[in-house]
Design a protein around this nucleic acid. Structure first.
Lengths: 351, 351
DNA sequence: CTGTTAGCGCTTTCAC
DNA sequence: GTGAAAGCGCTAACAG
């Protein structure tokens, strides 16, 4: 009826006594430090395992004493999603201070590989860990690998560089996100047939390309009545995105769905509502986009937008910090906890 | 370009010196303990605020020394969702042990108010905190309030008792969850008109009643073409739920949507697929339910189920532990982090 | 009302 | 290779 999940009030001293060695030796074994005879190592390891001994993190933290510093390398410029991540980092400040952790955000042009690479390289000696919103480019990959070689812990955030030796990626599976968007557009179109438009920032961005790939996968496989038009590249800018979409809507009267892959949402929404008012009789275009911001929240409530695919920015900020901390301390990472989910947000489950 | 979020390498001793008092006095002020002259309190408070001082949690934890014990009072019986919560608690065991936290789960009949109340009362002296999946009943409310009065920290889990003085509720807003389910059934029905069935465990359960309320709200307001049939009460049992639904499907040929509020999913799915095979020409019934389990995962992948409204059980387990710990330590709760979201899970964003 | 002091369990020199 | 001992910053018991 009652099931205990933990216990262990043992200390290093107990293990030391059981293994017939001193505190220092147990500590050496615990951290795989050199200078212990293999046979002694074995004896100590056995004592540790026999007791399922877990060192007390608070004591370790205190004794180690050293404050840790992490850097967050984020895109400069007014990206609301990135601003949310920074805001959530700010909200953690008391939590961070209570653990003597320093977190600094560094704004840089993450879209220029050499600028980004240079920013990263400059961090090598000053930080224990780095979280970076990374462009996937050989130069950036090299810079990340150099950091790793220098002993700095590295996590990629939101956008991954899978070919690098980064320790962890904190972000969503963008192909699955695109598939989810496709399923939503298709299902919410409710059996109508017609054309579907895609507006992206650029197909050169890894995350955008992956989302489009997933979207097209689902469209082709499951919604034969819907045909996908060539991708519009709006560079994540409102004006350009709006203009391109307005032109497209003019050329095709039978557009029933729209997938906005990146930002530029303001312009996209404008183009849609212009069409709606100029041509009242027509069915609403199903509109699916990404991220919950002040704007997309409003559009969802107004019914202009039907669903937003979202990655929880607060969770991403905290997960990045926790993962860096676990890496720095050599603790295990709780993968389930740190995994970023693909959230479907509609009007009634707005967070 | 670089923005620092933290610093503070100050210690209690620094504050003591600045305020012209001893360590012990600062400690008293910090924890609002009695026996300090108001004027001294003020001086110390000023020094603390002037420096934005944050005590080092690891040091406090270590000095306090006492291991903490938490109890999770969960429903007995084979509820897969509850089993998932317990499994995630199990996965935390290393994390818990490293912090000298003991977590025990206690199975009880949470549907019988006096049994549940008795279980709770029995915990008073043995635990620092209690998480309970609670039935909303006056007797249970009283038991919770007694625990609180005895100094035990209490959080309600999954199902709330809002009238009690519990310190925190870890779970979703069930009215909003019901509304979300309604919007999904309505939208995914794609303009068809007809009838919608609801299968619930019991309308006497607060969470089920709230979900149904939210569901009906949306149906009435937004989908005039869909009429909701009287609620079937399947007691969360497969067989009973299946039988009731089969009978209903026989009586109404124009059922286009189904909302399964609680468990009994196996029976519900069986009834649906029986109908589908007996009558192949008809459109599929839109089927929305709750929670991602092995079964609902399979049903989503097969296309039998269209969407699951889910509350992340791993998140709930961890949030409950973190909230109890923060309450016990007197630390602030990160509300944003501990808030449980209403997840919409479809085939392509299955976690 | 306020101060002094002995740890908490680990890490890290420095000796042997 | 191994051990002894001095803290890390806070808490709590005890003295005054």
């Amino acid at each position: 009826m009652a099931d205990t999940l933990t216990a262990s009030a043992l200390t290093l001293k107990d293990i030391a006594r059981q293994a017939g060695v001193s505190l220092a030796t147990v500590d050496r074994v615990l951290h795989n430090r050199p200078g212990v005879r293999p046979d002694t190592v074995r004896r100590v390891r056995e004592a540790i395992e026999r007791n399922a001994f877990q060192p007390h993190v608070a004591a370790a933290e205190l004794a180690r004493g050293r404050a840790r510093r992490f850097a967050f390398v984020m895109p400069s410029g007014p990206n609301p999603f990135m601003q949310q991540i920074e805001a959530y980092l700010g909200e953690m400040s008391a939590w961070l201070a209570a653990r003597r952790l320093g977190v600094e955000t560094i704004a840089t042009d993450v879209f220029d590989p050499s600028v980004l690479a240079a920013s990263l390289t400059a961090l090598a000696d000053d930080y224990d860990g780095v979280a970076v919103v990374a462009l996937d480019h050989p130069r950036v990959r090299a810079a990340i690998d150099d950091l790793v070689d220098a002993g700095t812990k590295v996590v990629t955030l939101v956008s991954d560089v899978p070919s690098s030796r980064r320790h962890h990626y904190v972000g969503i599976d963008n192909i699955a996100a695109g598939r989810t968007a496709g399923a939503l557009v298709g299902r919410l179109a409710g059996g109508r047939s017609g054309k579907v438009a895609i507006v992206a920032g650029s197909q050169g961005l890894r995350d955008h390309a992956e989302r489009i790939f997933g979207f097209n996968q689902v469209m082709a496989a499951e919604f034969p009545g819907l045909s996908v038009l060539p991708v519009l590249e709006g560079r994540d800018e409102d004006e350009r995105s709006g203009q391109l979409l307005t032109r497209l809507l003019g050329r095709h009267v039978d557009i029933v769905g729209l997938y906005n892959v990146g930002a530029g949402t303001q312009g996209v929404a404008k183009a849609l509502s212009d069409r709606a008012s100029s041509d009242a009789g027509r069915d609403k275009v199903v509109f699916v986009g990404h991220d919950v911001t002040a704007l997309t929240r409003r559009l969802l409530l107004q019914g202009v937008m039907d669903a937003a695919i979202s990655q929880n920015p607060g969770h991403e900020a905290r997960a990045a910090v926790r993962v860096l901390l676990a890496l720095a301390r050599g603790e295990p990472i709780l993968r389930e906890q740190e995994k970023i989910r693909i959230d479907i947000v509609m009007r009634d489950n707005l967070p």
